[in-house]
Amino acid sequence: MVNQEDRIIIRTENVNFYYGEFQALTDVSMAFETNRVTALIGPSGCGKSTLLRLLNRMNDLIDGCRVEGRILFEGRNIYEPDVDPVEVRRRIGMVFQKPNPFPKSIFNNITYGPRLAGVSGKADLEALVERSLRQAVLWDEVKDILGQSAMMLSGGQQQRLCIARALAMKPDILLMDEPTSALDPISTAKIEELIEELKKTYTIIIVTHNMQQAARVSDFTGFFYLGKMIEFNVTEKIFTKPDMKQTEDYITGRFG
């Protein structure tokens, strides 16, 4: 493997995943380093988003799906029966493709998760809101309108709010499922800068359709095709001298 063993925060071991009869992932084994950005790329339907959602057990919400293999988060299989998916999701946050703030105030969007996790007290919550919004580089734009509905923000601001909301849980890992695919180029650039900044504190795993984005923001890249992980390596290697022909074909735009 390309990674250094002691820096691994989460790894998958021989993971198979089925939606009913359909096998969406076949024998995926990969390891993600802490404080690095790992990009998952591949054509639509290749299983990259499915893998992402397996990492914080979001796929539990779908009826009739089945996981085989192990996903070890800090050495513990998160699919053991005695693991509480709620605990997993508190430590592994997620940002979705479409900005999805709650129809609540900006303040209440940020405090939603922490409140459920037991954070209370006005001062603590206010400090948390400011810290999270600063981390997501949104503080200066919204500091005077924290009481207003998050629905009033632009798409790019909404997505940064969603990132701030995920960061408010102080997660160890941040999963991002095509976080910029619904945004304009300027908002996209802001989010990419943000990712660069966030990897100092967090481990980021990002699914993207935009190969330039993967090349720009990630340290490692995994290429998926038809539910299989074809190649996983340092981003520079993947984009300059991939080992597999399929990877090269995809990256050079011959299919996908």
Binding site: M58, V86, F96
Partner: peptide, 27 residues
């Protein structure tokens, strides 16, 4: 109620009943 709201809630570590009470019903 958009599925996205529910997903956001679950992803922040909410349980089913917390999601129903705090996100689904208000929306």
């Amino acid at each position: 109620v958009p599925r996205e709201y529910k997903e956001a809630s679950y992803a922040l570590g909410a349980t089913t009943h917390e999601t129903i009470l705090r996100v689904v019903i208000p929306s």
